[in-house]
Structures are given as structure tokens and as C-alpha cells.
Amino acid sequence: MLGVDDVAAQLGSIGFRCRGCGGCCRRVAEDSNLVLVSPAEVRAIMAATGMAWDEVAEPYPDFIGADGGGEYTLAWCLRRTVDACIFLRDGRCSIYAHRPWICRTYPFMLVDDDLAVSECPGLGARFSPCDARDAATDLCRRQAAETVEEAGIRAVFHEAVVPPGKRAVIDSEGVKVLHD
């Protein structure tokens, strides 16, 4: 795993400043604005907004066949309209203080020991050492949170049973059967 100082150095050499364009929140291609969220992130957004689970999150769209004709997926995503995240309002994030890790760290992601960078018009701008360190800290925290979530999913998955003919999401909290 990369350390905060290593990530901060890489971020500083790339540079970034969010332009507030909202492009990362809009659908520009199929699933381009697909934001994966953990159950903990869904619950934090629910607490902040008063919305219900199914108003905040939708199942990850790729399902896998299970015994008995059921299907499952292993993740949740923020709900979207036809063209944007439901929390993009008047060009701004309406849950900014409670936004998920993916949104908090965009356009960067740690994949094992590599820094992945998504296309973004804010890339290349001067990144102060303090801002680069803050972003690096968030990236390392995100990676740790994702590792914990993945371990939780693996633990649940080994005991998971998807009811015949039903669709479900298997997450770190268990099997959540979707209602039609």
C-alpha cells in the first residue's frame, strides 16, 4: 500500500483544482457517473437527508445468476436520473458534506500501489503541498474503507443465499432482497 507522503508527491506532480463543473456527476456515457457506495455511506446520506435507502441508492446494474434463477450484485450506487446523480442540483452537490469517498477523491483512485487518474478538466492546476497531502490522506482512507467493505462482502458472500427467482444485493451487512 502506498503511504500518504508517496501519494501526496504524485498528486503534487499531477496537479488538480476542482472547477465545479459537475461533469463527474453527469452521465456522458453509459454508467459514466456510476458512484459506488458502501452501506455506511448510504446510511450517512440517509441521516443527513431524511431519505429512505431506496431513494438514495440503487443496485449496481450488473447482476450475476444464482441457483434457483435468482440474481445478485455486490454493490450499491447512488441513484441517478437519466442524465445525472440525483444529488446534483443547480450544478452543485446537495450532499457535499456527506458525499461518498468516490466523490471526495475524484478524479483520483488508489488501485493497489498505483494512482489511477480519471479525465477531468481540473487536472494540471497547481496543487498546494497542503492540499495534495489532504487529498492523499483522503485517498488512503478511502482505500482502507474499501478494503474493509470488500472483506465484509467476502465474509457474507460465503454464507449468502439468494432466494429463488429473486434479485438481491450482497453487501457487507448481508443479503438484501430487492422488491419489485
Rank of each mutant, 00 (worst) to 15 (best):
P39N: 06
F127E: 10
Q10R: 15
P59Q: 03
V175T: 11
V4L: 13
A132R: 03
P121S: 11
V37Y: 03
V42F: 02
G3S: 15
V111T: 09
C140H: 05
G50K: 10
I95L: 08
P164C: 03
V148S: 08
P39M: 03
A57E: 01
P59G: 04
A40C: 02
R142Q: 15
G122D: 11
C130P: 00
L2P: 14
S172L: 01
V35P: 06
E58T: 10
E146G: 07
E159N: 10
Y96K: 09
V35H: 05
D112V: 01
P107N: 10
L110I: 08
S172W: 01
D31A: 12
A135Y: 08
A8F: 07
S32H: 07
E58V: 10
T49Q: 10
G68W: 00
D171S: 09
L2Q: 12
M109E: 13
V169C: 06
R26W: 13
H179Y: 00
C103A: 06
A136N: 06
S128V: 03
I102E: 13
E41I: 02
A29T: 14
R79G: 03
V148C: 04
L74H: 01
C18T: 05
D131Q: 14
R27Y: 05
M46E: 15
C21M: 07
R154W: 05
G124S: 09
A9F: 06
D90H: 13
Q143F: 09
Y96F: 15
R154H: 11
I153G: 05
V169M: 04
P107C: 11
G22D: 11
P121V: 07
M51W: 15
D131I: 00
L88T: 07
P129N: 12
L2D: 04
F87W: 05
L34G: 02
A168L: 08
V162C: 06
G50N: 04
Q143A: 15
V162N: 05
E30K: 14
A29M: 12
A136W: 04
H98F: 13
Y60R: 00
A66V: 04
R43I: 01
C24A: 05
W101P: 00
L2W: 04
D67I: 01
L74V: 07
G165I: 06
D114T: 10
P129D: 13
